[in-house]
Write a protein that binds this DNA or RNA. Structure first.
Lengths: 197, 197
DNA sequence: TCCTTTAGCGTACGATCGTTCACTATCGAG
DNA sequence: CTCGATAGTGAACGATCGTACGCTAAAGGA
């Protein structure tokens, strides 16, 4: 049973990975079982089986995308000390993620936020938790840096979180829609300027 | 012929208005002829007829939404002189639009940007033109204000455009996804701070 | 080696998708 | 009043949607 269970897990991962790629360009609600089955060379039943339903598949895809964001931007920053050093590393990783993300069509979380913000349900709840944790992480590093005297306490932490996430969102639009190659560097410069003011 | 043509125009407007509302929550690609027909109490053929096809309907909806954004945020600002005065009025209108927009689910343009940025076609072209004109308008007012000595020339105009649009996008997420009622006021304060630095 | 479990396939279901077409009813022009 | 134009209806089409069910084949435990 173990060997086959491992194989099933690999299949599951393959389905989710392809689903994340398709969702990145078309959105979570355009993720259809049939097109995913075609892309994978599998039957529809084989694709949806491990997840029970299309909703389960969407949930797995969003979970995976959130994990990928954390793995790309947050996790590596944990190797440097908290506060300003970690914040600076995070900004570098963040802008690198915006420039050439693991998703073909820009920031998955931002796209999901626009797609899901008006559609109550488990998908929205999962996204809300992800965004809330991400913003809390940023805020925490800012406050630690302020306590250490590395960021001016005249700046409001919530204001900085809004400014930083905003710069990222605007840069994402400049990269994905406006095809502005200078956007990632500008975003990095603006983010660093925002916290060193 | 005139009377009936007017009636046809009213029907067209009614279809587009309902389509804009539905699209605001579900997205352009979830705008379905059947559901729109149900919402309007019309037949599917009657809904899609005036637009030739679903693609034509989507185009009309996006056009209308862009017009509504311009009418809400840009047009009224034309009554004050260009440069800093017009920019300040625009910021007020912009934050008011984010707070209680004519769309039920937040900034239509931002949502469309995320939905369309990876899908080449006429819809994307229309959106790209809209966003480009909007950013050019902001930049123009900034440059005029700088020429008049009302905004420091040490600030880069493109940087300011990125910062302002970013604040708006972040505030949009805070309002729509995070249900943060303080977001509009913070956005206004941050925008004004950005240009008076 | 046999037996149970299960990963994944193939098929079928009803519903809905976008589009087309014949038709009706209404309205303005003559 | 009559007639041509047209806004909108209703039915039908092939395709695709998500889901369910029976099946096959392979794999692990006995």
């Amino acid at each position: 049973m173990r060997r086959s269970a491992e194989a099933a897990q690999l299949t599951r991962d393959r389905i989710v990975a392809t689903g994340v790629t398709k969702t990145s360009t078309d959105g979570l609600y355009a993720l259809t079982i049939g097109s995913l089955a075609d892309a994978l060379g599998m039957s529809k039943a084989g694709v949806v089986g491990p997840f029970g339903s299309r909703a389960g598949l969407q949930f797995a895809v969003l979970t995976k995308a959130a994990d990928m964001f954390i793995a790309a931007v947050v996790a590596p920053s944990m190797q440097v000390e908290s506060g300003l050093p970690r914040l600076r590393v995070t900004i570098d990783l963040w802008c690198g993620y915006l420039d050439s993300s693991p998703f073909p069509n820009g920031c998955f979380v931002t796209a999901a936020s626009c797609e899901l913000d008006g559609r109550p349900g488990e998908l929205r709840n999962l996204l809300l938790a992800t965004v809330t944790r991400w913003r809390a992480f940023l805020r925490e590093q800012i406050v630690i840096a302020q306590t250490a005297g590395d960021i001016a306490t005249t700046l409001d932490a919530d204001d900085l979180v809004t400014a930083l996430t905003g710069i990222a969102m605007s840069a994402n639009q400049e990269i994905q829609l406006l095809a502005d190659a200078t956007a990632p560097a500008r975003a990095r410069r603006l983010m660093l300027a925002a916290i060193t003011r």
